[in-house]
Nucleic acid binder design. Structure first.
Lengths: 372, 372
DNA sequence: GTGAAAGCGCTAACAT
DNA sequence: ATGTTAGCGCTTTCAC
């Protein structure tokens, strides 16, 4: 942490400034005071001013005061731009998420912001919206801005992020790894233990007596068969429950698509006694469709989902959910990205545990006959 | 939009570089190629390279190609740091919200990101967490980073943001205005028409026959009596319904506080036939407390709230809500902040309309006797 | 059409 | 303890 005079007060253009101001910022208006202005006004060299503000080197208490006073007077704030050029560090971290509006992403962002703050870094945020082109543009921008580290929740192959490790900029994937396996071990990742989460839900459901469990997946576009889907099959198989192919429905990550998939699944397989939704969007869809179809939850249909969003508890009945530590994911990823923990080579992804939050939406499996 | 070679590819340190590299970025590793490297490698002057990348001036097709090739070779990305120092524009916008995790803020952020993208700006995001000190630090950081514009969802007095307009940096408040009226007309604001929103809800409720309507407020800490609370009283009065003081409950903007307030209100006034929650937190609390108290919604108690969050529709019954155009708020605020529309003087805040989304949580007022 | 040179605001040697 | 100086990577006159 650096020491600034008058935390919270902001700079402004100087009052008495002698030297010329050729190129104004285009949209006329005041111009920020520079280190030179302060030096002149305080009657010292610019190096001294720099020392005062950067905390480096020794300055006599008297001079320091004079400088501080002058700075206050001129509303001086050291320019990060100038400093960054010299020090080759911007103090900024790039954060790219699919959608800042999504509760999972929002929590993750919260974690990053938290951590960045303790580290004295700021955060450039942008949303990929699941569009590879947009993701590439964002990576580009981060590069251009010379961020000190990057945290990405990748949508696609992860290719756009390739340049960072090469250039010595720490790159950390969070929440998911790029589909392309170029990345295996190349960049560190902080992930929720999705497979374990799915497993816990499946075990819970099967333990309740369910044998016909549906899966509502919503992989990002272009992603190969989701980890969760695989985990779902594996968990079922491990428990000796045969996996039928049409128990699995896939959707794009939008409300409409999820709804369509849920409706399709539940109508196609009216013998289902439980559904596991792979995210809050399909979870929401399952609830809505069940309501539409007049299925009582959990009497007729048990519902569980991944992501313990706020409404899970407000639903009636409250929804059983696999909670992913989104905030921690962000926090840890930020630590790694800022500290450059990357250097320690391909140490494999950091896996954070999930937790099954049992509420009222799952019950014992009803008789094996079709529902309606 | 500038033209760059190979959108999406990123820069890297050059292969054949002659000149010295004294100060490496501390954490060893590759260093990005500079304009000089490209110039040397392409056998041209740096000005030419600059022209190629900034689109300024004329460059012959042949030279342009050579430059582009060299740049590609060296994984060159122009440095925004160098450019910003020269041009005095960083291309960055500062965005401060109380909490990135809150659905309203998240939507607002989404809007800002959207708009910023179309404007070719990037966004520095930070969360104030309702803490004035933190808010001041963030303002400080934005100033230091020399953002081109600021969008703030203020928590307190708005004092920390004072420096920006003074320094000629466009400042736009979004969602709410600072409590201190220093700001009246000083900085533009983009607001939802909260008063109208509350009014529409109150009119709806009273129209349903409700006469004992409670209000669950959750003003930010340190904020004077909320606009919404005032609007609530006014609306009731306008309809000829007497306003009793203890119909209004206030809470801090946390789950727990909201819950406590809701429980207090509903227990204290068991004759209430309807509640209007001033936000999704108190709304959530109302739903939970009603459930806890075994009140049927809407038979025993009608519930409406401000902010049409995702779960409003998933609730049983689905919740009637006043929807605020959070995303548009962000979008518009960003436009103003980036375009510097500020210059047009104190034109008063931009007011965006709210919408009453009627769902199933409000019904005709039950008999006037106390509930239980 | 292209190059040389002068800074933008700052830090870091190096002098004093 | 403090001043001088040389750049950091870029844009921008100003010559040619």
């Amino acid at each position: 942490m650096e020491t600034f005079p008058e935390k919270g007060r902001s700079w402004q253009h100087g009052a008495s400034r002698a030297h010329r101001r050729p190129a104004r910022p285009e949209r006329g208006g005041a111009v920020a005071a520079t280190i030179k202005d302060v030096a002149a006004s305080a009657g010292v060299g610019i190096a001294t001013v720099s020392r005062v503000f950067s905390g480096t080197g020794a300055v006599s208490a008297a001079t320091r005061e004079r400088v501080l006073a002058a700075a206050r007077d001129l509303h001086y704030r050291p320019s990060a731009v100038g400093r960054s050029l010299k020090t080759r560090r911007t103090g900024g971290l790039g954060l790219a998420v699919p959608d800042a509006t999504d509760p999972f992403c929002a929590d993750l962002i919260g974690g990053v912001l938290d951590c960045a703050r303790t580290l004295g870094q700021h955060v450039l945020l942008d949303a990929t919206l699941g569009d590879p082109a947009r993701e590439a543009e964002i990576a580009d921008r981060f590069a251009e801005q010379r961020v000190d580290g990057v945290i990405a929740v990748p949508s696609g192959t992860g290719d756009p992020w390739e340049g960072f490790p090469r250039a010595g900029v720490p790159l950390v994937f969070a929440g998911r790894v790029p589909s392309c396996r170029t990345w295996t071990g190349r960049a560190p990742a902080v992930l929720a233990d999705d497979a374990a989460g799915i497993r816990s839900a499946v075990e819970y459901l099967v333990g309740l007596g369910h044998r016909r469990v549906g899966f509502l997946g919503a992989p990002a576009p272009g992603t190969p068969p989701d980890v969760r889907e695989d985990a779902f099959r594996a968990a079922l198989t491990a428990l000796g429950v045969p996996v039928e192919e049409d128990l699995v429905a896939r959707a794009r990550p939008t409300r409409d698509s999820a709804y369509a998939a849920a409706a399709g699944l539940l109508q196609r397989r009216s013998d289902l006694t439980a559904v596991l939704a792979s995210g809050h969007l399909p979870g929401e869809a399952a609830v809505l469709v069940a309501r539409e179809l007049d299925l009582r939850v959990p009497a007729d249909l048990s519902i569980a989902m991944v992501d313990d969003v706020a409404w899970a508890e407000l639903c009636d009945p409250p929804l059983t959910a696999v909670s992913r530590p989104a905030r921690d994911l962000g926090y840890r990823a930020c630590e790694l990205a800022a500290r450059g923990g990357v250097r320690r080579g391909p140490s494999g992804p950091v896996l954070l545990p999930t937790e099954l939050v049992v509420r009222g939406s799952c019950g014992p499996a009803p008789s094996r006959r079709a529902r309606h």
